[in-house]
Amino acid sequence: MGLKEVVGHSESKAKMHNDEILKYLEGIVLLEELKADSKGLRAFSEFLTVTDFPVGSEIIREGDVGGGMYFLMSGRVLVMKKTIQGDFYPVAKLAGGTGIFFGEGALFGQEARSASVIADEACRCLVLDGGDFERFCRLYPQWSVGVILRLAKVVATRLRALNQDYVMLYQALVSEIRG
């Protein structure tokens, strides 16, 4: 399986050298364990798709199910969420090139996306499909264990923060009802 090259919504041809992608992947902490073996990163990169997004396009839509995880190589994205009434508000602005990734939740199950991601500038992403990730893990368990552990840490950190939020909301609700 060679490196797939996909042109997203834009017309610009994504002519990327494998070396360039490998160099970018080296900077990602998540893939630290893959670097130990020179073949590790190369094997991993074969499961990735290069996709370009023009300014203003929606990379992930809140509420959509499934999809993949995105490594932001270049450009800038805006993470947006919706209130119950349907008003959008910005959560974060992420600039590429620094090992930024998002949408990792899609690797572990078919759950609805928790936020929208919109291209604030023209973006180039490496997309890892949920199914492809599973295939990678089964093919190369010796490398994938490290990646999965690191991803588990990311998810666990988020879960802890969510737990704190939950406690805070719970207290607020109780004190509100007490009056």
Binding site: K81, T83, I84, D87, Y89, M168, L169, A172
Partner: peptide
């Protein structure tokens, strides 16, 4: 109320709503 909900920070959300 609509303005108050426009945050992902729960602490801030509670303050806003109050």
């Amino acid at each position: 109320l609509r303005e108050a909900q426009k945050t992902s920070n729960v602490k801030k959300l509670i303050d806003n709503l109050q």
